[in-house]
Write a protein that binds this DNA or RNA. Structure first.
Lengths: 106, 106
DNA sequence: ATAGTATATAAGCAAATGATTATATAAGGA
DNA sequence: TCCTTATATAATCATTTGCTTATATACTAT
């Protein structure tokens, strides 16, 4: 694995707020609006953090109406698999629990 | 594993120069002076990067005369074990190869 | 169309980061 | 002792980061 990709993914994961985002997504899809409550930062701040994770190839998104559901990509690098293993899932932040639009496809 | 420790170790590893330092140390002890050649940055810069890795509990040091030999700690966290596995060893930077004082104890 | 909601993007700013040069410390040899 | 060598620390500075507020975009509903 290339050192620059290692660096990119490590940098993306090396932040407490982004670790929490990953912790939320370990249980499945999460909406941006839910992250806002969990992290206690503004909605634009959440969007920007999510973008970093997406640009590092760690998460992906799915649009559902006005909402956007984010989730971990299925094919993680070995590096990210190892890191994600060490992050405790954070419950109660998933679409399934308190999102108005519970993942019905299209 | 605590999120703050995860963050600390990820932050420590999330830098190309520090990844190279770790890559060097995968083969054993390395002197500060050797790192300077490998990274192409100043000696104080190397010292500061090494300190970050040390403060994150990833490496340790041993004094040998005027030299200081750095190496990976033996008991790595699961997180760091996984990360270190993904870093290719970098050869030719170890004390054994070009250091004047080859690791004779005390 | 118009209004409301969810998210993204832009601009601005304070704090953190990673380098530099200069200097301090510690050990070794003349 | 004095000089040299190896490393650490201090001060400084430019760049990056992560937030904020303001605004744009996209979809839904009336």
């Amino acid at each position: 694995m290339e050192n620059t990709l290692i660096e990119k993914q490590l940098k993306a994961a090396a932040d407490l707020n982004r670790i929490k985002l990953l912790a939320c997504m370990k249980n499945g899809e999460v909406c941006v609006c839910d992250f806002v409550d969990v992290l206690g930062i503004s909605q634009p701040a959440v969007s920007q953090q999510l973008r970093k994770l997406k640009e590092a190839g760690i998460i992906t998104e799915r649009k559902v109406g006005t909402w956007k559901h984010y989730r971990l990509v299925e094919e993680q690098t070995s590096l990210m698999k190892g890191i994600l293993e060490q992050i405790e899932p954070l419950n109660g932040c998933n679409c399934g629990s308190d999102c108005t639009n519970i993942g019905e496809e299209n």
